[in-house]
Design a protein around this nucleic acid. Structure first.
Lengths: 205, 205
DNA sequence: CACATTGGGTAGTGGCACTATCTATGTTAG
DNA sequence: CTAACATAGATAGTGCCACTACCCAATGTG
């Protein structure tokens, strides 16, 4: 199909599609001539995926590019992909591992839980920073509470992985995992909010 | 204290503080003269809170204003506050309840769980939209899985509420709840990512 | 009473996600 | 075969947002 059909079927203006092509969010079509290119279903799917990541989850264009790049680079290594980027901190100038400043607290917690995660997982830093900020605002999260949250996170992760189709090919599986990891985030937070409202009402009897 | 001290103690430039004052994120100081106003510790705390919501959680300035306004308006009605705005959809032009398009799925789920949440909780819509988007991408979340996530969300909420100090005054309690609800979000998502990486590695033996 | 500081207001900046326009081709209906 | 229309690719422009810089009259301060 040509760009106008891609646009019509996705609801995304052609100008925006061209923009995504320039930014590398969408692979170029197969050029048939100097001013003609052919797109297929994979482009359409990718475009919808990009829109979902940007629109539903609120990722920036560059973060979206990083995420998609990570999936492409590590497809087949599911756990790598799952631990990756996403919320992520900008990497060092030189694009290297990034020191992972992860506070001692976080390291201790992960050790206690027996979790095996790579040293430079950006989530370590996110976790550390968030807890540090809360502490500075006088809202320390106790170690026990943290263990409780971690246990629930672990069960959530089990649920996440149970939903992957083990027969799908690695690339599809990685993409599916990505989609569910990232796009379910707003849903999980919404569930928490609703549960809080319910629980709070319950306690106030 | 005067604005320069507020700036020095918070690390926020005076120009930015003035901006927040204009935007209503920070209440004006007590004016002592035409070109002089006095700020106190509550301003400092509020300023740090604003910075945390914007910086750590990534809320926009206007969303931050809405959140803080909601807390002020509903302090004392903890469950109202907890269910409120936050991630939120922009309200209708007229600022009314907003129809809450919440899909039938979501209503069913909430009914099944026996949760008591207000009809116009924005989280309903967020949840519905997210699930709908995933479905359109061919990643349907089964009803059973959703029930599983909801159960975990409920336990998370219990943990959240357990950490509130029942002796604190309602306003402080509402603020504390807000802080923990909103600021813990990145931390909870980070825990999920780490848990996914661990669980995925574990399964791959 | 000289002078740096402040409150309040207005205008400017840089980044981001598009969006519009232009040109040199291509395609296609008649 | 050609006139009308649709690209691809490039460049420039737009609107919004979160600041940021500057200006002024009015202070407070040594």
């Amino acid at each position: 199909m040509r760009i106008s059909e891609l646009s019509r079927r996705s609801g995304v203006p052609t100008a925006t599609i061209k923009y995504y092509l320039r930014e590398g969010l969408l692979p170029p079509g197969r050029a048939t001539a100097a001013t003609q290119a052919e797109y297929d279903e994979t482009h359409l799917r990718r475009l919808r995926l990009v829109r979902a990541l940007i629109g539903v989850r609120g990722l920036s264009v560059s973060a979206t590019k990083d995420v998609l790049g990570a999936v492409a680079a590590h497809a087949g290594e599911r756990h790598q992909v799952l631990g990756l980027v996403l919320g992520a901190r900008p990497v060092d100038e030189d694009g290297e591992p990034a020191p992972a400043p992860g506070s001692a607290d976080v390291d201790t917690l992960i050790g206690e839980l027996g979790w095996q995660v790579s040293d430079h997982a950006p989530s370590r830093a996110v976790l550390g920073e968030t807890l540090e900020t809360l502490r500075s605002l006088g809202e320390e999260v106790s170690h026990e509470a943290l263990l409780g949250y971690a246990a629930l996170a672990e069960r959530t992760a089990v649920l996440d992985l149970d939903q992957l189709d083990p027969h799908a090919d690695p690339v599809d599986q990685a993409e599916s995992a990505l989609l569910r990891t990232v796009l379910l985030e707003p849903a999980l937070l919404a569930l928490r909010r609703l549960a809080q409202e319910h629980e709070s009402a319950r306690r106030n009897t």
